[in-house]
Nucleic acid binder design. Structure first.
Length: 974
DNA sequence: CCTGCCCCATA
DNA sequence: GTATGGGGCAGGA
């Protein structure tokens, strides 16, 4: 028994590249490839004839669409150009050709041809077959068997070489330097630039083969990577272990594809003139027709050309065996990836168990107070190639806090604390005087550690490393490269377990010492420099120890759960970018804010007096409770609603309603609230955030707080600076460029609607964006049959609300509230919208189904957004999850896009020779500071980076538009 | 002094 | 209808 498997897709591309480009038949259909394909197929069967002729045969093709490999690594084969246009109609024709030759043609959605071939080869070998795979694809070399039961056959003509070249174990060894069973391990390390398999950067086939030969296999190599002598090579492997594991999964062929045809279905059939000649004649392949006519002793004139083949169809050839029609099997997830017992998942589980089993031992921690001890730690770090680092400081503001100590750990269960800034508790007014004795001088410690902290070959692991980076930057140390357990956890599980204490509790079942236990709480809480060194050391060294443990638990999960790409391409590189933005800060004009505060205070006081007058009594306008009682109890206004705790609702929408009903007090309160809000939250608060050292305001971005992947900003929050009202915008005028500089604001136009159009594949929306239309007006025109020209503003406003509603997972209830209309009317609007844009409903239903089935939805860049209560018994909770699951991929994909833009921005600006400092991010907007007069150089670069940020990982099917303006303050630049 | 609630600023 | 952070009030320590 002998099975011949033909790599059909390989044959097509070979035919395409080997033959003169445009060979068309008389009706213009390009068929050059089909012709080449037929010739090669025919020649192969002729060449294989003889004593050892195949008894079974099939041609296997790649199916359209994604495979499980795209889930593992979205960049897989990402840089492949799309198939040439003239090739596209020829794909189905090659299937028809195969069937015309009475050979089964097999392809399955969700799998590559290689997987199907691997499956058949494996099946056949077990059944005692000999297997030949006609392909020169090196990825198939992993299937070669030492006993010769599976071989490849390379039939590409090469000058000076025999037409048929067998590839057995020896040939594989020549190519990869290892036996066939180790080929995947080698490929995992060296990668493949053609298919975009990453491998370990900087490791080629030779090095890979040498490493695998020495360590036996990939997993052993990775677990013992720290033993490698060459520092650079060791570091590459330690850093990129997960990438290697991913690569291995990408190159490993699946041998368990659920094929529908068994081996008996592949028994060779004689060529049948009734199948063959109608096809060949339709294709107008005269030469091969003649040759086959001779061979089969048939007369082609007895057959009519198959008319169905004149067009571009995949109609089966009449008379061809039924079983050989193409298969289309629904994409199924590979069992191997789901089972916890398999490769990366098992590795992750084992690491978790190993780390968890070792209890925290505070006695094992060391306090470093001598140069010798410090040197010993440096040596340990160099030997190990990685270190967990944590800094202890006097406060929480990374732009102000002073360094008090550094903790390190190279081996979990161990750790040290290096105190450098503990102060004596001297007189209480000065807050202490002088350093506690017995600490190494801070300069000496930093100078000793600097080489390892900046060493490219030593990985620094931290929890919320951005903080430590900012502190250390102020002491002249650039911490790099880094890994961050908080960000790894965020990439895996979202913001669910933020904070090291929660992570330690959850993953290690260990309660860490809390800072309150150590330093007290409230206004008497000690700052870190006031703590006893011995006490501080336990807490601090534990931080480093736990961080390293968490890293060992969490890092392997990245590859086991297909999150490596997200982490490596978005989260990890973003942290240093944010650190620099925070360090730069932005100039805020104190005078402007002070003037505004005065103005707002005066006007608010007038409103307050007016309100007391109208209410007929004095009361606290800031108390919703008192206000509600006055409006609805004392004044007896009808129609008030209660909040869920039973208090009167007095929100702005309620008050607007009352004002419209002719209650002047309501309007007065709204106006008063607006002014006091602006004053309290902005004009009074912001000046307190001006850093005395830099004279600027430094917000802090949280990279790991938001479910959808957005950033959040706090202390102060610079992502909610007012913009909608005139008074509000005045606050923006206080955000200024310093002398000699200009601000640039660049914002994505309608990014979320564009993302929606792409994800949900809504042609009407895409067309509108392509044509640069006013999207809300277009929607209004579609929905209400009103021409865009001269459209009343209220019609557009309604459409705009609906568009936003769609993004938010619309409900009739919510839309009615927003527009102040009846529920029923809102329901009709939604119905009409779904009719006009039918794909939207499909998208929404798909997300709802997905979140129920998987417990998560995904952005286009593979960020998973978890909804643990997707199947909650509580109906309102469930509806909430449904709406959020509709919104999350849209908001999240947009968030991923701007994150990618931010990561690329600095290098691209530098490359373009443009000096521009990125200062702020406000979800769809980036703010820069540039030297005055260079705006026109900076803006095009900024726009280009932002507009192209999705590429090449995702090719968006809508244009992305960024608007950018320059001015001296944020209000005018926006 | 801490916490929950209400309200409101942004995308 | 989505996602946040923060100020002020009120109530319970």
């Amino acid at each position: 028994m002998h099975l011949l498997l033909v790599d059909g897709s390989g044959y097509i591309f070979r035919a395409f590249h080997a033959l003169p480009p445009l060979n068309r038949k008389s009706d213009g259909l390009p068929v050059g490839c089909v012709q080449g394909f037929c010739n090669m197929l025919f020649k192969l069967t002729q060449d294989m004839d003889g004593d050892d002729a195949p008894t079974h045969m099939a041609v296997i093709f790649d199916a359209k669409g994604k495979t499980f490999r795209d889930d593992i690594y979205p960049l897989y084969k990402a840089q492949r150009p799309p198939a040439p246009e003239e090739l596209i109609p020829q794909f189905p024709l090659t299937r028809s050709a195969t069937r015309a030759f009475s050979i089964p043609s097999i392809e399955m959605e969700g799998w590559e041809a290689d997987d199907i071939m691997a499956t058949y080869a494996c099946m056949a070998r077990k059944a005692g077959f000999k297997v030949t795979i006609a392909s020169s694809d090196k990825d198939l070399m992993q299937l070669v068997e030492p006993d010769g039961s599976i071989r490849l056959l390379d039939t590409i003509p090469r000058p000076g070489q025999p037409p048929l070249r067998w590839i057995g174990p020896d040939e594989v060894f020549t190519k990869f330097g290892v036996t066939p069973d180790k080929v995947i391990d080698v490929q995992a390390l060296c990668g493949d630039s053609v298919d975009n398999v990453p491998g370990v950067p900087g490791i080629g086939v030779k090095t890979a083969a040498q490493l695998i030969t020495e360590y036996g296999d990939l997993e052993t190599l990775l677990s013992r990577a720290e033993e490698i002598k060459q520092p650079a090579r060791r570091q590459k492997l330690v850093d990129n272990a997960e990438l290697a594991r991913i690569s291995k999964r990408l190159v490993t062929l699946e041998q368990q594809v659920p094929v529908e045809i068994d081996l008996d279905g592949l028994i060779r059939q004689p060529m049948r003139p009734s199948a063959l000649f109608p096809f060949l004649k339709a294709m107008e392949f005269n030469t091969i027709t003649k040759r086959l006519a001779t061979l089969l002793e048939a007369n082609p004139d007895d057959f009519e050309p198959d008319a169905t083949l004149a067009a571009n169809t995949d109609t089966p050839v009449p008379g061809a065996p039924q079983r050989s029609t193409s298969l289309s099997v629904a994409k199924a997830k590979l069992a191997a990836n789901m089972v916890p017992g398999s490769g990366p998942a098992r590795h992750a589980a084992e690491e978790h168990a190993r780390v968890k089993a070792i209890p925290v031992n505070y006695d094992s921690y060391e306090t470093v107070t001598t140069p010798e001890a410090l040197e010993a730690w440096v040596k340990k770090i160099i030997d190990k190639g990685l270190v967990a680092v944590d800094t202890e400081t006097t406060g929480l503001d990374p732009q102000q806090a002073d360094l008090v100590g550094i903790c390190l750990s190279t081996e979990f269960g161990e750790g040290c604390y290096i105190p450098v800034g503990h102060r004596k508790s001297g007189d209480m007014f000065e807050g202490g005087e002088g350093l506690v004795e017995g600490q190494l001088p801070i300069r000496e410690v930093l100078d000793t550690l600097r080489p390892v902290l900046q060493d490219k070959a030593i990985l620094k692991i931290g929890q919320n490393v951005k903080y430590d980076m900012e502190v250390l930057t102020r002491y002249g140390i650039t911490l790099a490269p880094i890994d961050d357990t908080m960000l790894i956890s965020y990439a895996l599980d979202g913001p669910r377990y933020n904070g090291m204490d929660v992570l330690a509790e959850h993953w290690l079942n260990h309660k860490t010492i809390t800072y309150s236990e150590l330093a007290g709480t409230g206004k008497n809480q000690k700052t870190f420099d006031q703590l006893e060194i011995a006490e501080a050391a336990r807490y601090a060294a534990e931080d480093a120890d736990i961080t390293l443990r968490l890293w060992h638990v969490l890092k392997p999960r990245l590859s086991a759960e297909n999150v490596t790409t997200l982490y490596e391409t978005i989260e990890r590189p973003l942290a240093p970018v944010l650190a620099r933005m925070e360090a730069r800060g932005i100039t805020v004009d104190r005078q402007i804010l002070a003037r505004l505060s005065g103005d707002f205070a005066q006007r608010a006081a007038a409103f307050e007096a007016e309100a007391h007058e109208l209410a007929g009594q004095s009361f606290n306008l800031g108390s919703p409770k008192q206000l509600g009682e006055i409006l609805f109890d004392k004044m007896g206004i009808e129609g008030g609603t209660k909040t869920k705790t039973g208090a009167w609702a007095t929100g702005a929408d309620v008050l607007e309603g009352l004002a419209a009903k002719g209650i002047p007090l309501a309007r007065t309160i709204v106006d008063w609230r607006q002014l006091t809000k602006l004053k309290g939250t902005y004009t009074d608060a912001l000046p307190n955030y001006i850093n005395p050292r830099t004279g600027r305001v430094h917000t802090s971005y949280s990279q790991a707080s938001v479910l959808t992947g957005r950033l959040s900003s706090n202390d102060p929050n610079l992502q909610n600076i007012p913009v909608r009202t005139e008074d509000g915008r005045k606050i923006r005028t206080a955000f200024v460029a310093p002398e000699g500089k200009t601000l640039i604001s660049a914002d994505y136009s309608q990014i979320e609607l564009r993302v929606l159009a792409h994800i949900a594949d809504i042609q009407a929306l895409k067309d509108a964006f392509e044509e640069g239309l006013d999207i809300h007006a277009m929607t209004a025109s579609e929905m209400f049959n009103v021409p865009v020209e001269g459209m009343p503003s209220d019609v557009r406003r309604r459409a705009k609300a609906i568009n936003f509603g769609i993004i938010y997972g619309i409900s009739a209830f919510g839309l009615a509230n927003q527009l102040g209309i009846e529920r029923g009317v809102a329901g009709e609007y939604i119905k009409t919208y779904f009719e006009r844009f039918p794909g939207i409903k499909d998208y929404m239903d798909a997300q709802k189904a997905r979140v129920k089935a998987d417990g998560h939805v995904m952005t286009i860049f593979g960020r998973k957004i978890q909804f643990p209560n997707a199947n909650s018994g509580n109906p309102s909770e469930r509806s909430f999850v449904e709406r959020a699951s509709i919104n999350a991929p849209i908001q999240g994909s947009a968030a991923d896009i701007i994150r990618r833009a931010m990561i690329r921005m600095e290098p691209e600006l530098k490359k373009a020779g443009v000096e521009a400092d990125m200062l702020l991010q406000v979800h769809d907007e980036l703010i820069f500071e540039v030297p005055e007069g260079t705006e026109d150089q900076a803006i095009p670069v900024i726009k280009k980076v932002m507009e192209g940020a999705a590429e090449p990982a995702v090719r968006l099917t809508v244009p992305i538009q960024v608007d950018a303006h320059a001015a001296k303050n944020w209000d005018e630049a926006h």
